[in-house]
Design a protein around this nucleic acid. Structure first.
Lengths: 253, 253
DNA sequence: TTAAAACTCGATACAACGTAAGTAGTTTGG
DNA sequence: CCAAACTACTTACGTTGTATCGAGTTTTAA
């Protein structure tokens, strides 16, 4: 397991060539049986279905009927492959919003788009983006966010802070939301089944007197659904941003 | 790499016994050279220093001068070990707040405590908590949060939604914050060095005309520090919660 | 008191991982 | 037309979690 992060490649030029699709056609050897695009697409499919932990070079290769080492003529390492996967699935974040869209609607749209991406490709959440792949879609996504908050009269620092705030919330909420269903597939146990296992045992080990609020809640709600409400949180976050924008306007004028 | 998540163990009773420290003393065989506490502590130290990916049963064992398989008499699997580690580092979240603390101060304190935990133990962020280990500290942390928002007249659902919102933001922000420094150690390249590699190459591949806002920002700020401001985001989130609490009070009265 | 059961720990082994190295065969530029 | 460049295959290495087995140790039951 080498790649749990992006930007791990050693050859920056090669990485950018791959990200921006600069594949010079005239190559010497035998015709290639595959393309980088194909490899990346298949890798995404496999990761979507079985998770990042199960995404191995061997499996990607096998799905094409070639050996693992063959892939290394398309992609220098698994790290680079993950970079390419991340930029590929970021495609929707580059889509333009409707004309006349105000900042709040724009941030909402970006947030929902990200949530969609995380929902469809949960493995993205496992990839640390400390150094995002500088591909067309990742850059376009950032550009779109910046232009959404660009007209508010905020400093660049504040613009970035607002964008990061929303992105951080979405990332965190998506992690919670996805974690549950991910575990159901990984362990083969539904959340309900899991609770059935633990619920009776808990009383044996836990002194519930020490957790009155928790006990009250479990009795009222049942421990079944502890779902994070994405929209609720998003609206609170945007309310907070709204207040900041307003007070920032007052000062600025 | 089996354990990137908690709650993966197969024997629920054994898991709870370990979490709640129920180690029945009269055991038959030779005296044990170690204790579960020791093993968990050492594993945390190693994960703090070298990351979760480098935390292997062999390394933990070697640090005690025993073989990898010896550990399996203390802990049934690496999954369970990670569960124990998570509950252990959650200890600070059980600490009580000052008397008379209002809800906002309480949520702030919980958020900062979590951020501290993530800062000191970045590997926790890599562990999916879809099914948190039901140990004393995790439970106490949830109890503390619930009692913080318990006096606001919110429904249990709304209480949970508020708690999850703050936790989700903190998790997301911590992931951003930690990601950068984590990569510096993992790749041996500082963020500045990394940018130096990519910056000149970018102009070769990227048509900056297509990213005007991004270009303007990079020219103004330089791409060096794209840090997430934890406190900024936290205050916006709490502002949002505040508005919700107020409007909820109006309705409720 | 003693035999058996229960336990710890070490040695060995296996399948799966990313990928280095080497080879055979194919295409193309000089 | 041949040598350089390229693809894809075979092998191989070191690492991972952990199953299995065996030898030795302590406790319990008779």
């Amino acid at each position: 397991m080498t790649a749990q992060h992006t930007g791990g490649g050693t050859d920056a030029r090669r990485a950018l060539e791959l990200l921006w699709g600069a594949e010079p056609r005239p190559r010497r050897g035998p015709k290639r049986g595959l393309s980088v695009r194909q490899v990346v697409s298949r890798a995404i499919e496999l990761a979507d279905e079985h998770g990042l932990a199960s995404l191995t070079m061997r499996r990607v290769a096998e799905s094409f009927g070639v050996t693992a080492m063959s892939l290394y003529s398309y992609v220098p390492s698994k790290d680079e492959l993950v970079d390419l996967m991340v930029d590929r699935v970021a495609e929707p974040s580059a889509e333009p919003g409707p004309p006349g869209e105000d900042w709040r609607a724009g941030l909402e749209r970006h947030a929902r788009t990200s949530r969609q991406i995380y929902h469809r490709h949960p493995w993205v959440l496992e990839v640390s983006m400390g150094r995002p792949p500088l591909g067309p879609n990742v850059l376009a996504g950032l550009e779109a966010r910046l232009s959404t908050v660009g007209g508010l009269g905020l400093s660049f620092e504040d613009q970035l802070a607002v964008i990061n705030l929303v992105d951080d919330y979405v990332h965190g909420a998506a992690t919670s939301l996805t974690g549950v269903s991910l575990l159901e597939r990984r362990t083969g146990l539904s959340a309900a089944q899991w609770w059935e296992q633990y619920d009776p045992l808990l009383e044996e080990f836990v002194d519930f007197e020490r957790y009155p609020a928790l006990t009250a809640m479990w009795e009222a709600l049942g421990p079944t659904e502890q779902r994070t409400d994405f929209e609720f949180g998003l609206q609170r976050v945007l309310d907070g941003v709204s207040r900041f924008v307003e007070s920032s306007r007052e000062k600025g004028t």
